[in-house]
Design a protein around this nucleic acid. Structure first.
Lengths: 235, 235
DNA sequence: AGATGAAACTCCAAAAATGGAGTTGACATT
DNA sequence: AATGTCAACTCCATTTTTGGAGTTTCATCT
């Protein structure tokens, strides 16, 4: 069957073992409370091997975050491929989806670590991979916004890159406030975000878009995200 | 959990992988037709690794045989713990059990190789492990015969070790004839063995035993073995 | 403040798997 | 009889994991 490349194959397997073990333990016992040695044991691997793969514990956590963002990608694509009429609803629905995905495998404590790692030591490895994550989301928003501009709801003179940055910025900020709490749920997060996003959008819509936005004001809450399936486990 | 001993643990795992792959392939494609390289691929292991574990292909096969004889041990013990009244029936029933166990995972071709390996090069490794197998069965027979002597059916002046050797010898011979064919089934094997065992026993019974033996002559065929459960897979 | 302890992380020698190239022996084909 | 092929087996340099003994850092207790 697979002739050579055993080295690489086993490496991938071990990496997944470590990530799986870490995910389980971070979720169950918390990030700080979980020791590298425990992860190694649980993954049937020597602690030194964990360090062969990940220089630091935060790095391991970032890798976990990236893996989740990767495996959940198809679900986000599906959402973006079938957007509602109302751009505000679209953005809030997307936020809900992102939040749900985020909560699916990583605890708030983990996200606190991830988000704070981006602040400190800009340029360090964890920070840069954090930037990659942000960039991925930014790309999604550019696509989303482009759709609505093409539908004639957003003014054509707007730089969608900048707008996407703005939205990612404020929603990330809201999300970091969200994970800073231990009690609030995703509905609270969205309630917090609605006025921000609305304020941003109000000035940037065409007349038709403004009509739609006004209409959606009456309706109240943000729409539910699309059906949330568990992540497909890659072979 | 399991702190150290990773080296040994992984070694055992790989060993099992190789044995599992070999078992599957030997059974499906035959012993000669299966290449070491294929086994290695199927076990996700380098060919050189297979040679780290087994010096030769026959050695690998012998290891497989030993593993089966080991895992099927409880079943044989259960049989020996609950023997019928008639010693002849007991021996034939045990033979049936052994044959069924033998056929369960290894093809006739494999057993031909194993049996012939014992002939050639006495003293070589495959031969010696074959002797270990024989010895294991011999032990079973000593236990079985002891039971009947204690029940007063076998004469007390008989050396049960020698008798066990004799029975193992003739039944192994019959078995080797059996696997030499491609068509006969286990019933044929037993039919072949009945007269041999009967002749051996006839001269060695007490009067009570002889009565029992005479009675069993009328009944005809050998009894079925105890219920045959699939091998328990060790953790 | 100083001691203690725990956990992240470093370092290195030894064990094992891997890849790859080469040898041998048996058997088939010409 | 020469040739070719195939698979068992050998050899060895390289990569990676492992065991184990450190070092460092930080928080807590005395």
């Amino acid at each position: 069957m697979a002739a050579g490349g055993l080295r690489r194959k086993h490496k991938r397997q071990r990496l997944q073992q470590v990530l799986d073990a870490a995910e389980e333990l971070f979720f169950r016992d918390g990030y700080e409370a979980t020791r590298i040695e425990t992860i190694a044991d649980s993954a049937s691997v020597a602690p030194a091997t964990v360090y062969n793969y990940f220089a630091t514990k935060p790095n391991l956590l970032m890798a976990l975050a990236i893996r989740h963002v990767r495996t959940a990608l198809p679900e986000r694509r599906a959402y973006l491929a079938d957007l509602p009429d109302d751009p505000l609803a679209a953005i809030l629905g997307f936020e809900r989806l992102l939040a749900e995905q985020a909560m699916r495998h990583l605890s708030r404590e983990c996200w606190r670590v991830i988000l704070s790692a981006q602040q400190m030591e800009p340029g360090a490895r964890p920070s840069r991979t954090g930037a990659r994550l942000n960039n991925l989301i930014r790309g999604h928003y550019v696509r989303l916004l482009t759709t609505y501009r093409d539908r004639g709801l957003l003014r054509r003179d707007i730089d969608l890159g900048h707008l996407a940055d703005l939205i990612v910025g404020i929603t990330t900020w809201d999300f970091s406030r969200f994970v800073a709490t231990e009690t609030g749920d995703i509905e609270d997060l969205l309630r917090m975000g609605v006025p921000h996003v609305r304020l941003i959008l109000e000035g940037l819509m065409t007349e038709e878009g403004a009509r739609l936005l006004a209409a959606s004001t009456a309706e109240g809450d943000a729409p539910r995200a699309v059906g949330v399936a568990p992540d497909p486990v890659p072979a």
